[in-house]
C-alpha cells in the first residue's frame, strides 16, 4: 500500500524560500523598533510562522497523512498550554502581595526601605524593643 508521492513544483519551493527570507528581514527590522515586551511576542510570532511554513511545505505536512499534522498542531497546543498557564503566574505575581513581585535581588532593596524588625517581626526601635508579652526567648 504505497502512497502516492507528492512532487512539489519548483515554483512553490522558490515562493516559500522567498517568504522565509522576507520574514527573516522583518525579524531583523522589528528588532530595531522598541515595542516594550511586545518585541519578544512579535519575534516569536514571526519565528513560529516560519517554522509552520517549513513544516507545511518543505516537510510535506500539507500532503501527508493528516495524523502527522494533528500531532504537529497538538504539540503546539501543549506548548501554548505550558507557556500560557505559566504566564498566569509570572505576569500576575504580586497582584495581591506586592513583595512577591520583585525578583529576589531587587527584593533586598525593597526590604531595605522598610523599618528594620527583629526575628519576631517587631520593629527594632530601642524604646519598643522589649515587649511585655515577648517572653519566648529560651
Amino acid at each position: 500500500m504505497s502512497e502516492e508521492h507528492h512532487i512539489t513544483p519548483l515554483k512553490t519551493y522558490l515562493l516559500v524560500a522567498g517568504t522565509l527570507f522576507f520574514l527573516t528581514a522583518v525579524t531583523v527590522w522589528a528588532s530595531y523598533i522598541d515595542l516594550g515586551s511586545f518585541n519578544i511576542v512579535l519575534a516569536l510570532l514571526i519565528a513560529g510562522t516560519k517554522a509552520g511554513i517549513v513544516a507545511t511545505f518543505f516537510m510535506h505536512l500539507l500532503w501527508d497523512d493528516k495524523k502527522n499534522a494533528t500531532i504537529f498542531v497538538g504539540s503546539l497546543m501543549f506548548l501554548a498550554i505550558f507557556i500560557g498557564i505559566t504566564m498566569t503566574d509570572t505576569e500576575f505575581r504580586g497582584a495581591v502581595n506586592p513583595e512577591i513581585k520583585d525578583p529576589i535581588n531587587k527584593r533586598a532593596a525593597f526590604y531595605n526601605s522598610l523599618p528594620l524588625t527583629d526575628d519576631h517581626g517587631y520593629p527594632l526601635d530601642k524604646e519598643k524593643n522589649h515587649h511585655e508579652g515577648d517572653k519566648d526567648h529560651h
Binding site: 498557564i85 498566569t88 509570572t90 505576569e91 505575581r93 497582584a95 495581591v96 512577591i100
Partner: peptide, 14 residues
C-alpha cells in the same frame, strides 16, 4: 501542575 506550588509564591491568579 500548579497545585504542587501553592506555597512557592506563584501568583494568586494561578
Amino acid at each position: 501542575w500548579g497545585h504542587h506550588m501553592f506555597t512557592s509564591g506563584q501568583s494568586v491568579l494561578s
